[in-house]
Structures are given as structure tokens and as C-alpha cells.
């Protein structure tokens, strides 16, 4: 039995995201110039940097929304950009929340969250509803189930988008500047939700401008500049004693 356990241990799938020497072009613009990064299960990684540094693009490449021209991205040992990969199936494992939440306007909040559960995971209406209600309560939208997104504030819509992605029980959550489009007073509620998720052990990659949040919540922080990771380390390393001058310059300009 011990031998069986040993064999099973070896067969356990790697749960991590491996990004290796990724290059990406937008026609002539070289946006990612050889990014390498590994994200372990349970880790919270923040990506900071100026606009155009490639961090949001990096996120889009991880779940295959954007193609890459060089390098590999592996999620749980599956090559994201291989022709044989079933992207639809892979995307069930990777949740992503966008800056502009992209709520489905013609569906209620509850229906927004239930849709993929029913149509992608094939769950029954009752099952999907139960999961959706639970997730929405989790993010604090229990009172707004029957409302249409147009009636919600930006912060509420963003939380709905988070619940929508979480309902799929993903292994990884990607957040692309999810508070940048919000009014200042609504940013807090969304960051609270993210904080809660990190405490629950979700693997998260967060692209953000909220430095205080990044420092508080992340296990590691990666500083992006001109399509490369210039520096990566713990929050203390990056914020308190940056090794590269570009990092220090950037931090000085935003803090």
C-alpha cells in the first residue's frame, strides 16, 4: 500500500503556472521580450509596473486570450498555446477578472453567475443556482441577485464579475487592474474581496496599481518594465530595498 501511495505521489499533477521565455508582438510592437515566471499553488503574486510594460498582456496570454510568438506557458503541465490543447476546457481552471468587469447586461446578477455553470460545466439549474447564490453571498451581493448589472455600482459589478469567475471553481485567478476603473470610494470593497480570497488560499496573479494592497497581500511582487520582469521578490525586498534603479524610480513615482 505504501508503494501504491508512492506511485500515486509521483503521478500527482504539477499545480503551477510555468511561464518560460515568452515573447509577444502586437504587429511590429514587441510587447513581451522574454518573460519567465513560475507561480506555485496557493501563491499570491502581484505584477506592478508602468502602462505599456506588458503586465496586462502577460495575463491575457496565460489563458490563451492572446497568442504568443515565442516561449511556452504551461498551466498544470498543459501547454496553453499548443494546437492540441482544448482551450475551453483549460479556461475552466483559470478565472480572470477584467478592468471593465464586462458584465452581461441582458442577464440578472444571478443569471450572470449561473450561465457558465450551466452551459460550460453542464450543471442542472438547481445546482447552478445554489453555487451562484453562495458565491454572490461570499462577495457580499446576496441582496442583489435579481437585479440587472446596469443597476449596480461599478464596485458591485466588479464583485459580481469576481463571483462569476469564482463560481467555476478555478485553480487560478487572474486579476487585471480590477480597481483601476472604479471611483475611489468603491475600490476598498473590491480590495477587501481580493484580500479575503488570498486568505482562503486561492492562487492569484494580480496586476495592480494599488501598492499598499500589493505589499500587504502578496507573497511575491514582480516589477514589469518594457516587456520584461526587471525585479521579483517578496514585498519587503521590492518595496523596502529595491535592487534595480528602475524599480526604485518607478516606486518613487507612484508612492
Amino acid at each position: 500500500m505504501l508503494r501504491k501511495a508512492g506511485i500515486r505521489l509521483e503521478k500527482v499533477a504539477k499545480t503551477m503556472i510555468e511561464i518560460e521565455n515568452v515573447h509577444k508582438h502586437f504587429s511590429t510592437l514587441h510587447v513581451l521580450k522574454g518573460v519567465s515566471l513560475n507561480v506555485q499553488k496557493g501563491e499570491v503574486l502581484s505584477m506592478i509596473g508602468g502602462s505599456g510594460s506588458g503586465k496586462s498582456t502577460m495575463l491575457m496570454c496565460i489563458n490563451g486570450l492572446e497568442p504568443i510568438q515565442g516561449g511556452t506557458i504551461r498551466v498544470d503541465n498543459t501547454d496553453v498555446h499548443a494546437k492540441s490543447t482544448d482551450l475551453n476546457k483549460l479556461r475552466r481552471k483559470i478565472g480572470i477578472v477584467f478592468q471593465q468587469w464586462n458584465a452581461f447586461p441582458h442577464l440578472t446578477v444571478l443569471e450572470n453567475v449561473m450561465l457558465a455553470l450551466r452551459k460550460v460545466l453542464g450543471k442542472s439549474k438547481a445546482e447552478a443556482e445554489a453555487i451562484a447564490v453562495e458565491q454572490l453571498k461570499h462577495v457580499g451581493l446576496g441582496e442583489k441577485l435579481k437585479a440587472f448589472p446596469s443597476r449596480l455600482s461599478g464596485g458591485q459589478q466588479q464583485r459580481m464579475a469576481i463571483a462569476r469567475a469564482l463560481a467555476m471553481s478555478p485553480d487560478y485567478m487572474l486579476f487585471d487592474e480590477v480597481t483601476s476603473a472604479l471611483d475611489p470610494q468603491l475600490v476598498g470593497e473590491v480590495l477587501d474581496t481580493l484580500r479575503m480570497l488570498s486568505q482562503e488560499g486561492m492562487t492569484m496573479i494580480v496586476v495592480t496599481h494599488e501598492m499598499r494592497f500589493a505589499r500587504e497581500v502578496s507573497d511575491r511582487v514582480a516589477f514589469f518594465r518594457e516587456g520584461l520582469i526587471h525585479e521579483i521578490g517578496t514585498p519587503e525586498q521590492i518595496f523596502d530595498s529595491p535592487q534595480r534603479s528602475e524599480t526604485a524610480d518607478f516606486l518613487r513615482s507612484v508612492l
Binding site: 489563458n63 486570450l65 475551453n88 476546457k89 479556461r91 475552466r92 483559470i94 478565472g95 480572470i96 477584467f98 471593465q100 464586462n102 452581461f104 450561465l115 457558465a116 452551459k119 460550460v120 460545466l121 464579475a161 462569476r164 469567475a165 467555476m168
Partner: peptide, 18 residues
């Protein structure tokens, strides 16, 4: 219809036609 709607739907795992 904004392209971002399609993008959000695809990132939830929906196929193109779906």
C-alpha cells in the same frame, strides 16, 4: 456589441458559437 463581451464569455470556457 463590444468585443470584450465575447472575451469575457470565452474566458469562462464557452466555445465561440456558444
Amino acid at each position: 456589441v463590444p468585443g470584450t463581451q465575447m472575451r469575457a464569455a470565452r474566458s469562462l470556457g464557452m466555445g465561440q458559437l456558444q
